[in-house]
Design a protein around this nucleic acid. Structure first.
Length: 423
RNA sequence: GUGGCUGUAGCUCAGUCGGUAGAGCACUGGAUUGUGGCUCCGGUUGUCGCGGGUUCAAGUCCCGUCAGUCACCCCA
C-alpha cells in the first residue's frame, strides 16, 4: 500500500509489543547484575576485519551474511552480526585485563545478518549476552550456564534442552580434525555438496549437517569426546560435576559444533521446544573461546560467554498478558472543560500518576467508550456543571462505581480510588 | 541462495461461470439535550501490490515483477 516500507527483515516495535520486550530486558539485566555482571555498550559498526578474524573466515556469517560497506571509500565497515567480537575488541582497547583479574560484562542490543527472514529470524534481530574474561574454568562455565537456565525459567521458559559438548583445546581439535578427515575422505562422494566443500574449509561443521544423505555417515564418525586430552577431560568433568551439583539438566551432544570458529572446550546450546518457535528452536548458545583475545592481538586470556535471541525467547514465552498499570483518563464535555482537563491532568501527573486525556471534542459517549477500551482504571469527567460546582466526576472503568469529589485536593482521591482497586 | 503459499478497506477476510467491489471488527453520529461495557439504526474508509498481455469487458484468466510469509540452509 505505502511505497516506503521498513527494510526487509527489519521490524518496527510498537508500544503494544514493547511491554513484553521491556519485561524480558529488565529481568535479564537484574539477573546478570545479581551474578556480578556490568553492562557494556559497543558501537553497532566495527571494522570488518574484527569479525573476519574472530568469527572465522569460513563461517556462514562471514562468508555471506554480513552487512559490509565502504565508508566514503576508506574504511571497510560491518554492522555487527554478534556481540562477542566487539566485547573482545573493547576489552583489549581499554586494556581491561591489566586492571582486573576477572571481567564480567553483559550486553543487550540489535545485531545484523543478511539472511532470508523467516519465523524467529530477522535481518535486524536482538541479542542479550554475557562475557567473562580471565577465568579458565571449568566451574565458571557451569555457573554461567546455570545462570542462563535460571533466567529462562524466570521468564516461564522451562520446556527446553541444554546441549553440552567439549571441543577440546587447539591441539585436541587439530588431532580430531585430522581423524575426522581420515574417516570422511572415503565417503566424500556420498556427502552433500555443502559437506564436500566443508571437508576442505571446516570439516567439524559436517557433524552439524542436517542433510539426509549425510546422516548415516555422521552417525559412525569418530567422536571428539574420545579425542580429548587429559586436561580437556578434566575440564569437561568439572563443568559436568558442577552442573550435576546444581541440578541443572543437560544432555551430552558430541556432534554439537555451532557455526562460529572461535570456540574451544566447553560449547553449549539451549533449544526450546515450544510450538511457537517453528524451526528456529535455538534460543541461546555459547561456550569458551580461550584463543580469541590472543587472536585479536592481546595476550592469552581465557574467555567464556553466551548470547540469546530475544525474538525467539518472546516466541517461546507465548502471549503473556501485559500488566496494565493503573491509569486515569480525563474526559471533557466542551472546550472550556478541555482547558481545565489539561490543567487537572498536569496536576495529577506532577503527583506521580499516569494520566491520559481525551481532548478531541467527540461525544462523551465516544470518549467513555475509548476510556473503557484503553485499560484505564478510572475516568474523570469535566463539564459545565462540574466546573461551576468545583468538583470532578469519577467513574470506575473496571466494574461499577462512580461519584464526585472536590476539585481541591483531588490527588489524594485518586490515590484512594486506585489504592482500593489494587488493595 | 533454493522451494511452497499469500497479496482486495486501518485489521481479519469473502468476492460464484470474466460483467466496473462486499462483510465482520475498528472508528464515528444517533436511539439516550453530558455518561463506557449489552442491543438497535445510520455514516466514513479502496492505486483489488505493481507492470504488461488476452478480451467488447479482468479483483477474477495468462506472463513478468515486487512484497509478505513459511520452510530448507544456517544460526540467536
Amino acid at each position: 500500500m505505502t511505497k516506503l516500507r521498513a527494510v526487509k527483515g527489519m521490524n518496527d516495535l510498537l508500544p503494544e509489543e514493547l511491554g513484553r520486550w521491556r519485561r524480558l530486558e529488565s529481568i535479564f539485566r537484574e539477573t546478570a547484575e545479581r551474578y556480578g555482571f556490568g553492562e557494556i555498550r559497543t558501537p553497532l559498526l566495527e571494522p570488518t576485519e574484527l569479525f573476519v578474524r574472530s568469527i572465522g573466515e569460513a563461517t556462514d556469517i562471514v562468508e555471506k551474511e554480513m552487512y559490509t560497506f565502504h565508508d566514503k571509500g576508506e574504511k571497510n565497515l560491518t554492522l555487527r552480526p554478534e556481540g562477542t567480537a566487539s566485547c573482545a575488541r573493547a576489552y583489549l582497547e581499554h586494556t581491561v585485563g591489566a586492571r582486573e583479574a576477572i571481567t564480567r560484562w553483559y550486553y543487550l542490543g540489535p545485531m545484523f545478518r543478511r539472511e532470508r527472514p523467516t519465523r524467529g529470524r530477522y535481518r535486524q534481530f536482538h541479542q542479550a549476552g554475557v562475557e567473562v574474561y580471565g577465568d579458565p574454568g571449568p566451574f565458571i562455565d557451569a555457573e554461567i550456564i546455570d545462570m542462563l537456565v535460571r533466567f529462562l525459567s524466570e521468564l516461564g521458559i522451562v520446556d527446553l534442552r541444554v546441549l553440552l559438548n567439549s571441543l577440546g583445546d587447539q591441539e585436541t581439535r587439530q588431532n580430531y580434525r585430522e581423524a575426522l578427515i581420515r574417516y570422511l575422505e572415503p565417503h566424500r562422494g556420498s556427502l552433500s555438496a555443502d559437506s564436500q566443500r566443508r571437508l576442505e574449509t571446516n570439516p567439524l561443521r559436517i557433524l552439524d549437517s542436517k542433510a539426509p544423505e549425510d546422516q548415516a555417515i555422521i552417525e559412525d564418525a569418530p567422536s571428539i569426546l574420545e579425542h580429548l586430552s587429559e586436561e580437556d577431560q578434566a575440564h569437561f568433568d568439572g563443568v559436568r560435576r558442577t552442573l550435576d551439583r546444581l541440578g541443572t539438566p543437560y544432555e551430552i551432544e558430541p556432534r554439537l559444533v555451532r557455526g562460529l570458529d572461535y570456540y574451544s572446550r566447553t560449547l553449549f546450546e539451549v533449544q526450546g521446544r515450544g510450538g511457537e518457535l517453528g524451526a528456529q528452536n535455538a534460543l541461546a548458545g555459547g561456550g569458551r573461546y580461550d584463543g580469541m583475545i590472543e587472536e585479536l592481538g592481546g595476550k592469552a586470556t581465557p574467555a567464556f560467554g553466551f548470547a540469546l535471541g530475544i525474538e525467539r525467547l518472546l516466541l517461546a514465552m507465548g502471549e503473556a498478558e501485559d500488566e496494565s498499570r493503573p491509569r486515569v483518563m480525563i474526559l471533557a464535555a466542551n472546550d472550556e472543560a478541555r482547558v481545565e482537563a489539561v490543567a487537572l491532568a498536569r496536576e495529577l501527573r506532577d503527583a506521580g500518576f499516569n494520566i491520559e486525556t481525551d481532548l478531541r471534542g467527540t461525544s462523551l459517549k465516544s470518549q467513555l467508550r475509548r476510556a473503557d477500551r484503553s485499560g484505564a482504571a478510572l475516568a474523570f469527567i469535566l463539564g459545565d456543571d462540574e466546573l461551576a460546582r468545583g468538583v470532578v466526576q469519577w467513574k470506575r472503568l473496571e466494574g461499577e462505581g462512580s461519584g464526585e469529589s472536590p476539585r481541591e485536593g483531588i490527588a489524594s482521591v485518586v490515590a484512594e480510588l486506585l489504592g482500593q482497586k489494587v488493595g
